[in-house]
Each structure stands twice: as C-alpha cells, then as structure tokens.
C-alpha cells in the first residue's frame, strides 16, 4: 500500500440495500462515506454478517463499486457476494436499515494501469467483483481513494468471465455500463462459450492480441493456468487472491500463500496485508 491510501478503521454502517442480482448472488450497498472516499480497487472490507457470536468472524469482500451522489461525492460502496456458507447466508438475511460491523479498507489494492494500453480482466466464479471499480478507475472515469488516472488511462478494458452456468452470471450489465466489454464462458454452454475462461484469453492471444495488462481473480486452478499463460506470452499479469481469512488485517496468519521471495525460495505470506494483489509470477503455483 503506498502513502496515498488511508488506513483502515472499524465502524458500524447502515445497509442501504441487500438485493439478489443472480442465483445466490447479492449486491450489498452500505452507507459509508469515509470508506467510500478512501478505498481503492482491489482493496477489501471485512464485514461481520452475524449477531453476537454466530457466525463469529467477518467475511472478506472486495470493493465492487463506489456509490456517488449526483455531485460526484463518494457516499457509500457496494460489495457483491455469493452465498456459499453460513456467513454469506447470514449476510443475505440482513435488511436495509440494519447496521453491520465492518473494518477496512484492507489490503494493497491494484497499482496503475498501462497508460494507453488494453487491459483484460480474467474472472472465475465470484472473482469478477473487484473488476468493476478497477475498470472505471483504470479507464480514467473514476477517481478512487483520491487517485485518478484520467491523464494516463488504459485505452480499453475487457472482462473475460467464467461461471458454471448462466444463472450465476452476475453484474454483466454493470460492467457494460462502465465501458468494460464482457465475454462469458460457462461450463455448460448456457451463456457465451462453453469451456474455461482461460480458453477465452488463449483465443485472443493466439489471435495476436497483446494486452498491456492482464489481471485475474478466481479459483486457484484458474489462476494457476492464467499465470502459466502469462509466462508463455510474456504478459504483465497480476492476480487477486481470495484466501480464507479470519481477521483480514494481519493478526491471525490464516490467509497465507506461498510467495516467491527476493533472493530465492518461497515463504508463506499474509494475503490480507501483502496482497490480495500479487504479480502472477510472485506466487509459487507449484506449492
């Protein structure tokens, strides 16, 4: 995290909206001007879904979108989550007007875009969520955390989005509205192309495309395949890891990933404080 990012804080914030947008998938909008004006794409929040003791822990959720008032002032933010366990199920039962304990912004977030270049986002499962805010930021349309790339924006942004089936595809219209082209792959062929999302990238690369930056977020096998492809085509590639976390702020050492160290060897490093964004080549995918 560089000097421009504000430090994290814990606060109680009010739910503005908690609405389904696809099968088992919700967008949660929180009223929180402080976080909204500080957070940058790639950073995340810990959000405690439950009551007193159960579910106990917060859940790490990436910034999806900064909400602005008509004057452009950041007044809140959105996260998008898939119901996959007790925590997200409890979160889906919370209603507008209720308050949630959150702490953030957390993590390092993304760096600058390749000025004038094309960026490609590669998402699997619920991994599309960091890319809406990132696209708007890198295309120079939005200032996030006090940083704007309007003078050094990416030329274009494309989301390659892989989900199991069409019912799980969430937020495609949000991306298109933000000026991000979307191409979908599904396991069952119910939407877009049938196959892996990494196949979509390979077709582009084989067709001669050379994006200035590729960013991936999704299940480890997908990211591992993406990292291989990035090496093969010598692409500038970052990944945002989604490791299991207990605290989100570096206290518990649960979320470690094998990271290649300067001077050789790998070490298990905390994704919450040293990531979640890493260079694809910095992750030891063999571990």
């Amino acid at each position: 995290m560089d000097g421009t990012a504000a430090g994290p804080a814990q606060r109680l914030v009010t739910i503005v909206e908690n609405r389904p947008i696809a099968r088992d998938t919700y967008v949660l909008r929180l009223d929180d001007p402080l976080t909204a004006s500080a957070i940058r794409p790639g950073q995340f929040l810990m959000i405690r879904p439950g009551g007193e003791n159960d579910p106990l822990l917060g859940r790490p959720l990436a910034l999806y979108n900064v909400v602005r008032d008509p004057g452009g002032t950041a007044v809140g933010f959105e996260v998008v989550y898939l119901v996959i366990g007790r925590g997200t199920r409890a979160l889906s039962a919370r209603r507008a007007g209720e308050r949630l304990s959150i702490w953030g912004p957390l993590g390092n977030g993304f760096g600058p875009p390749p000025a004038g270049g094309a960026v490609v986002f590669v998402a699997g499962g619920i991994g599309q969520t960091p890319f809406l805010a990132l696209g708007g930021w890198w295309l120079g349309r939005e200032s996030c955390g006090g940083v704007s790339y309007a003078g050094a924006a990416a030329h274009s942004a494309t989301l390659l989005y892989g989900v199991r089936t069409s019912e799980l595809a969430a937020g495609i219209e949000d991306f298109e509205r933000a000026g991000i082209a979307v191409e979908v792959a599904t396991d069952d062929g119910s939407l877009g192309r049938r196959g892996y999302v990494t196949d979509l990238l390979r077709r582009r690369l084989e067709g001669g495309a050379r994006p200035g930056k590729v960013v991936g977020c999704g299940p480890p096998p997908m990211l591992s395949a993406l990292a291989r492809m990035a090496r093969e085509y010598d692409l500038d590639c970052d990944v945002s890891l989604e490791n299991h976390m207990a605290c989100g702020y570096g206290a518990c050492f649960s979320c470690v990933a094998p990271i290649v160290q300067q001077g050789g060897g790998t070490d298990l490093r905390r994704v919450c404080v040293e990531g979640p964004v890493f260079g694809a080549a910095a992750v030891d995918w063999s571990a």
Partner: peptide
Amino acid sequence: GNATPRTVETPAGLLN
C-alpha cells in the same frame, strides 16, 4: 508454520 487451511470457524468459536 502449517499448511492451509489453518483456521476454521466453528459454532461461536474458531479452530486454529
């Protein structure tokens, strides 16, 4: 340290 998963949430608790 140990391999992951290193923690798992349990009812009103955490196993680490």
